[in-house]
């Protein structure tokens, strides 16, 4: 339960920080009004999802680091490093790199592992300002692997779960890379 609560809070903080930063920097009243109109139902949606995640009558499975989770972790790490390499070293661009990794994963891997590999590849789409070299991409690969293994139920079935995991992992990686400098 503690794992789910921490996971939900981290995911929600990523979504809310995007909305609040956009509101704070809104260039006009029209932008501001649109953002308020989207923020209010989003907060209600997050509240509803909080009750789903913390529903004690459906506690879900206990966390066990089984073989499947090791595969998720390894595929996530490989997806980040490959996407970063195709994006920055091969010069294919973030979208072509991400699409290629997604198609390879969807064709070759089982559904759950393909989903996590695709989600992890979003991290590899980061700019050189965030992940300046392959070592930084490796650190981000480890971070997103851990995040995806620990937060299986959070945002499940919501389009954009992978992106939110990736954004959270990229922010965490940025922090760790900054510490290591």
């Amino acid at each position: 339960m503690v794992r789910k609560i921490i996971g939900f809070v981290a995911f929600a903080a990523t979504s809310i920080s995007f909305l609040f930063f956009s509101l704070w920097k809104a260039p006009s009243k029209v932008h501001y009004a649109i953002l308020v109109l989207i923020t209010v139902p989003t907060l209600f949606g997050l509240l509803r999802h909080w009750f789903e995640c913390t529903d004690c009558s459906f506690p879900g499975k206990h966390f066990i680091m089984d073989k499947n989770k090791y595969f998720i972790f390894i595929s996530a790490f490989i997806a980040v490093v490959m996407t970063w390499f195709m994006n920055h070293e091969m010069g294919l661009g973030a979208f072509v790199a991400n699409g290629t990794i997604g198609l390879i994963a969807a064709t070759l891997l089982p559904t759950v592992i393909a989903g996590t590999a695709y989600a992890a590849s979003f991290v590899g789409m980061s700019s050189l300002g965030i992940l300046p070299n392959i070592q930084a991409a490796c650190i981000a690969g480890l971070v997103v692997g851990i995040v995806l293994v620990l937060t299986e139920e959070i945002y499940a079935g919501i389009g954009g779960k992978g992106g939110t995991s990736a954004a959270l992992s990229t922010h965490l990686s940025r922090f760790f890379i900054h510490l290591l400098k």
Binding site: I38, F122, M125, T164
Partner: peptide, 20 residues
């Protein structure tokens, strides 16, 4: 800026707003 996953975060917010 330049953070991988930003577009997915927008997608998740859009889905939550629609669901509500």
């Amino acid at each position: 800026r330049g953070v991988g996953g930003t577009l997915g975060t927008i997608a998740a917010i859009a889905c939550f707003a629609f669901i509500s």
